[in-house]
């Protein structure tokens, strides 16, 4: 067990296109969901699942696996696609997203989906769960790491900062937060609805090691993950600048694409761009 594959940058970029195509197909089939928020996370997820996580999709409960928590749970279509593509379950299951009886619920459910570490989707809760996992790893003298992805709208939740304070207090250097900073939330631009800026300074103030990066540049993302792993004595946050709706021109930076599924015609246009 260990890193799944050691893909070159071109291969990672190809994987991202595959995942993004899945997201579009899943959402048009489901008729609802969150395309913008899913697409912004894809490159960060691909780098993690193909080049960083020590995991074994054939054995999702392997006790020594690295953990990944999608705290911004509405982006789960991208996560489901990454799980399916890396072998946690059949790719055919992606067609069932959000349907009655599906293993792929509208927000993550650990009881139905292999590879999901915690159920939820209510914003602001994932980092605390990640902290609990990191404390358990330390108690058990295990070296697995925990990654938690949050949105830049999500960090408006007060609980995130409770978790940030506690993770720093407990020197949780096996915990890595990834902020998908796409600049938008449901009601509009972050800076107009409720500014969470300056994001890096806030985390530094809470005692975290901060890495700022471009969330769509694979060499930069991989360098950030490696730097985070090397930091000892405190947790690390990767503040990744991303584009909401990344990869589909008419969805990029458009708040309307936060939580609406494309029509068949729109999906065809999107898929054509993702070839």
């Amino acid at each position: 067990m260990g890193n799944l594959q050691n893909l070159d940058i071109k291969s990672l970029e190809d994987r991202s296109k595959v995942i993004r195509r899945h997201v579009i197909r899943m959402l048009v089939k489901a008729g609802s969901g969150h395309p913008g928020s899913s697409l912004s996370t894809v490159d960060l997820l691909v780098a993690l699942f193909y080049s960083k996580l020590r995991h074994n999709p054939r054995q999702p409960a392997w006790p020594d696996r690295d953990r990944f928590i999608m705290s911004k749970g509405h982006a789960c279509p991208a996560l489901y696609a990454a799980l399916a593509e890396t072998g946690y379950f059949g790719i055919d299951k992606l067609d069932t997203l959000r349907q009655f009886g599906s293993m792929l619920q509208g927000h993550p459910c650990m009881k139905t989906t292999p590879g999901i570490e915690i159920s939820g989707g209510s914003l602001g809760q994932g980092l605390s769960v990640g902290l609990g996992i990191s404390l358990a790893a330390k108690l058990d003298n295990k070296d697995y790491r925990t990654y938690v992805m949050l949105g830049d709208g999500e960090i408006e939740e007060g609980q995130v900062w409770e978790a940030a304070m506690a993770a720093s207090h407990y020197n949780a250097d096996n915990l890595c937060a990834i902020i998908d900073q796409n600049g938008l939330q449901i009601d509009g631009f972050i800076h107009e609805v409720m500014s969470s800026h300056p994001i890096p300074d806030k985390w530094r103030g809470f005692g975290w090691h901060v890495i700022e990066t471009n969330g769509h540049d694979f060499p930069a993302i991989l360098a950030a993950y490696n730097e985070a792993e090397a930091v000892k004595g405190r947790p690390t946050v990767i503040v990744a600048k991303t584009v909401k709706g990344k990869g589909v021109s008419f969805m990029e930076n458009q708040v309307d694409w936060h939580g609406k599924a494309p029509t068949k015609e729109e999906a065809e246009r999107a898929l054509a761009e993702l070839k």
Binding site: E117, I118, Q125, S128, V129, L131, G132, L135, A136, Q159
Partner: peptide, 12 residues
């Protein structure tokens, strides 16, 4: 709030 979910993480 953080305490409750930290407990959840430990339980997993």
């Amino acid at each position: 709030a953080n305490m409750m979910n930290t407990a959840a993480g430990l339980a997993t």
